[in-house]
């Protein structure tokens, strides 16, 4: 197990990723965007406010936390496919993959190292953004446990979207195609499932009150934004639970579903990285 966590491929990936100037620029623009939104929000509610008092109140602080959380989730969803969908196909295009595959490094170690190094970079961005969240704590209105919960959701989301990116990077030869498909799936998880949830909820509203449908529950489970919103508004969870007749907590279902997707994607990636060397029976 130790060899999985501390292995040459992971060392190499982290060294190459963090040595690049692009990585520095990535962190810079990430914080610039997030910081700009936080400061803009405070300015709108104080300096540019119509209120004569211009005080930043705890309830506004909570709203700012929500805004920051949603923006951060959007950035995670935007950056993860870009960081992971080229990890294997990029090596293939650079013609370095074949050499790597002739080393005794296991497919599991190569795939997980690629994923973990990408997640490590995203985690660096998350950690770097923590001082921005300290503004929220300065004004109050948000509990630390909620912050941990939100960061837990980010982690599960980046792990799953990252695994999907690695999967397509492994099974598709061209990075550009793998990237487009990964972004497509991410878009479906965000916009597609949200749209389907709204439609199905509306449809349920027209039906008999006693009649339930699992459809809104299923579509909600795959939407990170709905789950994030659920962390702030517990009433949303109750509404979906009532409409579907499923009492199982929405956030727990999201974590299970996403981790399952991640596991399947990584399992197939590990199997597909190297050719199946077992002799094919029955073929001439």
């Amino acid at each position: 197990m130790k060899s999985l966590w501390i292995n040459p491929v992971l060392n190499k990936e982290i060294k190459l990723r963090f040595r690049s100037f692009k990585s520095f620029l990535g962190v810079f623009f990430y914080l610039f965007a997030l910081g700009g939104i936080a400061i803009g929000f405070i300015l709108i509610n104080t300096v540019f406010s119509y209120s004569s008092t211009a005080i930043f109140r705890p309830e506004q602080s909570r709203t700012m936390f929500m805004v920051l959380s949603f923006v951060q989730m959007a950035l995670v969803l935007f950056m993860t496919p870009g960081l992971t969908s080229g990890v294997i196909s990029g090596e293939r295009e650079r013609q370095t993959l074949n050499i790597l595959l002739t080393t005794p490094q296991t497919s599991t170690s190569i795939i997980l190292s690629k994923l973990f190094s990408s997640i490590a970079y995203l985690l660096l961005m998350m950690v770097a953004s923590l001082p921005l969240y300290s503004i929220v704590f300065l004004f109050g209105g948000v509990s630390p446990s909620l912050l941990f919960q939100i960061f837990g959701l980010y982690f599960v989301t980046m792990l799953t979207i990252g695994s999907i990116g690695v999967f397509f990077s492994t099974v598709i030869r061209k990075t550009i195609v793998a990237t487009i498909i990964t972004y497509g799936i991410t878009l479906f998880f965000t916009v597609g499932t949200a749209f389907l949830t709204i439609i199905s909820m509306q449809f349920s509203a027209f039906q008999n009150v006693n009649q339930t449908s699992v459809f809104p529950y299923i579509t909600s489970v795959f939407n990170p934004f709905i789950i994030l919103l659920n962390s702030f508004e517990e009433g949303l969870s109750n509404e979906i639970n009532n409409a579907s007749g499923i009492a199982f907590p929405l956030t727990a279902a999201f974590i299970i579903a996403f981790l399952l997707i991640s596991f399947v994607c990584l399992f197939i990636s590990i199997k597909k990285l190297r050719p199946n060397m077992k002799e094919k029976k029955g073929e001439a």
């Binding site: 074949n98 595959l101 002739t102 050719p275 094919k280 073929e283």
Partner: peptide
């Protein structure tokens, strides 16, 4: 060479 380097699976033979 690719088969000998374990990069390609042979259809048959060893």
């Amino acid at each position: 060479f690719s088969i000998l380097a374990t990069l390609l699976a042979p259809t048959s033979g060893a």
